[in-house]
Amino acid sequence: MPMDARDIETMIKAALPDAQVEIKDLAGDGDHYAATVTSPAFKGKSRVQQHQMVYAALQGRMGGALHALALTTQAPDN
């Protein structure tokens, strides 16, 4: 059951309340998205840890309902 971009954003923000989330639908099939997530919670964390935080927010859907999520994570510059 593919996911909707809004669901992805809602789930990420539920786990990372102060995150800014930008989602692009890559294929229009509900299965391939690109997301850029910016959150102070990423500060001091490695890329792998940052991505794992986002995957945890998606509660196991990553790699299942959500086949592809090209993910870019960053802490805000300030």
Binding site: R47, H51, Q52, L71, T72
Partner: peptide, 19 residues
Amino acid sequence: WPTIPQLYVKGEFVGGCDI
């Protein structure tokens, strides 16, 4: 890590495709 591929260097997980 929920997806494939996965790259390991000297026993350490480096990341998937994006990273």
